[in-house]
């Protein structure tokens, strides 16, 4: 659901303990965390996230938000980049360790129907929620997935998640040219937009990449959905820490009225 009216609470969110199944290291700073032990009725949709208490004590203090990349047979896969203390602790978890988990939280990407032709632009760990969307796409749909990485070794870990490619066409780009096109994934997106017509554009990743994608979507007047990664506090809509500025001049909570938002409604230019 994309919130047109602001939501009152995170429907179905609960606090529970999950268990680490395994931690799969992909590169120096990239890994996949597999968690199990979710409640029976846990049923996340593409774009939703978990808010993890990474340590049992107060260091670090706040929970850390992570998108659910896939959820199958009671196990969630989360693609994580180690950037600080919290993600480092998660990287070093052992099978069987318990993780205090809050979720599922947030809004979702619109479903990809059989008549849809969707352009996806994802960078780094921002591909996680986009991959979740691909899994749920109807047969007959077409997805062009522009996927930007730093270098080739980041792709290998993520590829198995693309599953049966079905409707998904992957267009790789890398910073160092070790795989695909050398340059920005938004360059590829821009070219594709000249070649085909799309019903929707989805994006998730670094702000600059999403802002460039936004410019394309605005130019072409295509419905545009972005998953924002704004620093969060409660994850529940209570603290008002996670706001982004809307084009109407409001500050909107990205944890509850996002993280997936109507990209046309976001002020992308930052001073």
């Amino acid at each position: 659901m994309i919130a047109t009216e602001h939501r009152h609470c995170q429907k179905n969110a609960r606090v529970f303990k999950t268990r680490v199944e395994s931690v799969n290291t992909l590169t120096d700073d990239l890994f996949i965390l597999y968690l199990s032990g979710f409640p029976n009725d846990f049923d996340p949709e593409p774009g939703m996230f978990l808010h993890l208490k990474v340590a049992p004590d107060e260091h670090p203090l706040l929970r850390r938000p992570f998108s659910i990349q896939s959820y199958n047979d009671g196990t969630a896969a989360i693609l994580i980049r180690e950037v600080g203390a919290g993600s480092r602790i998660l990287h070093h978890l052992q099978p069987g360790d318990e993780v205090d988990t809050l979720g599922p939280l947030g809004t979702t990407f619109p479903k990809i129907g059989k008549d849809d032709s969707v352009l996806m632009v994802g960078g780094g760990v921002g591909v996680a929620p986009l991959i979740a969307c691909c899994h749920e796409a109807d047969a007959g749909a077409r997805v062009d997935f522009c996927f930007g990485v730093r270098s080739e070794n980041e792709v290998q870990g993520v590829e198995p998640f693309m599953g049966e490619r079905g409707p998904v066409h992957i267009h790789l780009s890398s910073d160092d040219g070790s795989v695909g096109y050398q340059g920005f994934c938004t360059d590829i997106a821009s070219r594709l937009l000249e070649e085909r017509s799309y019903t929707k554009i989805f994006t998730c990743g670094p702000w600059v990449m999403m802002a460039k994608t936004a410019r394309l979507a605005i130019q072409k007047e295509i419905p545009f959905f972005a998953s924002l990664e704004v620093q969060m506090g409660c994850g529940l809509g209570a603290c008002l820490a996670c706001v982004y500025e809307s084009t109407e001049g409001d500050f909107i909570r990205s944890c509850i009225d996002g993280p997936v938002v109507d990209g046309h409604n976001v002020v992308w230019e930052r001073v």
Partner: peptide, 23 residues
Amino acid sequence: RPGNKPPRMVELKGALLNSIGLQ
């Protein structure tokens, strides 16, 4: 009140620093 410009919250050691601005 619209509140303050983000970022509005930072984690410190054993503490939080916030400037929500009474939105």
